[in-house]
């Protein structure tokens, strides 16, 4: 059972959520090193401020469609962390019985899914948005993409459709500045993605994902805009990808010194801890308690996941066609 709050988190809870996310990703990296995971792994370490900023504005009935770097979004949407990690660790007890793997988690109940194909999350989210309008319910569909995926044609197609029919659709652009090795400004015509919003007569804003409170305020506004049927929104959140594109990426296209500076100055956990202390919103001991409980929670999950069985090879053909 996830203990990450999704409704009205306090600052300490928001901080704890980020710590949970960091520990979760670190556990995945260890799982990779220990050969529990034999494929690719993309972690969101350094980008926790984005997912933590989503807490509080996502309703259970809202849909969230994420990317290859999806773990933190899944946690923010309330997906069971144990089922998610078991899926990442390719176990039968995983969210998708080990058939999907870390890039393809699907939780129908929580209305969470992801795709490993960059830019392809948006049309799927748009389908949910169409359903919500058809049903005249207050839910919103959020499609997450990186800034790299925002240059895929689907971005335009989806914004045009959503804006034309005023669908409850939010594109959350997680702008970590790098499409693997290609810097954003070398391949993108404008300095922000969100300024494209005016081309669709839509809501658009760019904020700094270092501070989850800033993200939370902007995300709440974007969601309210879409929820009140004023059309789609583009929320761009800048953030830092601490590690290579995937575990094992040499990351040599970014100078070591730059990466070191980034980890020092762009760490949302470090930033937010200091902010809460300076503002007197939390004491050191409260934060330490949160850190310890986050660490323990993840440790418990890792132990359960490692003890879980791998899928039975005799069942490799299951779950394809079901007929009528």
């Amino acid at each position: 059972m996830s203990t990450v709050p999704v409704v009205s988190p306090t600052p300490i809870e928001r901080y704890r959520a980020m710590v949970v996310m960091r520990r979760f990703e670190e556990a995945c990296i260890r799982g990779m090193q220990q050969k529990e995971i034999h494929g690719e792994l993309h972690t969101g370490i350094g980008q926790e401020g984005v997912a933590a900023g989503m807490l509080g504005s996502l309703l259970v009935g809202d849909a969230l469609v994420s990317t290859h770097r999806n773990h933190l979004h899944a946690i923010a949407k309330g997906v069971s962390m144990q089922a998610l990690m078991a899926e990442i660790f390719e176990r039968e007890t995983g969210l998708c019985r080990g058939r999907g793997g870390h890039m393809h988690p699907f939780d129908r109940e929580k209305r969470f899914s992801a795709t490993g194909i960059v830019g392809s999350s948006l049309p799927v989210a748009l389908g949910y948005a169409y359903a919500f309008q058809l049903e005249n319910v207050e839910n919103v569909a959020v499609g997450v993409t990186g800034e790299g995926g925002s240059n895929a044609g689907a971005f335009h197609e989806c914004m045009n459709i959503a804006a034309t029919w005023k669908l409850p659709f939010v594109i959350l652009v997680e702008n970590n500045g790098w499409a693997i090795s290609v810097p954003f400004n070398e391949v993108t015509a404008t300095s922000t993605v969100s300024q494209r919003a005016s081309g669709y007569d839509a809501w658009g804003q760019t904020v700094d994902g270092l501070d989850p409170d800033v993200v939370a305020t902007a995300f709440a506004e974007a969601m309210l805009h879409a929820r009140s049927r004023r059309g789609p929104a583009i929320l761009e959140v800048t953030c830092a990808r601490f590690r290579g594109h995937y575990e094992g990426d040499h990351d040599g296209y970014r100078p070591a010194e730059t990466r070191k500076r980034m980890r020092e100055s762009r760490d949302p956990l470090k930033y937010y801890r200091e902010k809460l202390m300076v503002l007197g919103l939390a004491t050191d001991s409260q934060l330490a308690t949160a850190e310890n409980s986050a660490r323990d929670e993840i440790a418990t999950i890792v132990a359960a996941v490692k003890a879980a069985p791998n899928p039975d090879p005799s069942e490799a053909m299951r779950y394809s066609f079901v007929g009528v």
């Binding site: 049309p123 948005a129 359903a131």
Partner: peptide
């Protein structure tokens, strides 16, 4: 028009919408 919808020439978007609509129970 809710159930029978003329689409713009945006096949990538509307085939993907089909996927999302399936997830939403359609």
């Amino acid at each position: 028009p809710g159930r029978v919808r003329d689409m713009p020439i945006s096949e990538m978007a509307f085939t993907g919408m089909g996927v999302g609509l399936c997830m939403a129970g359609y």
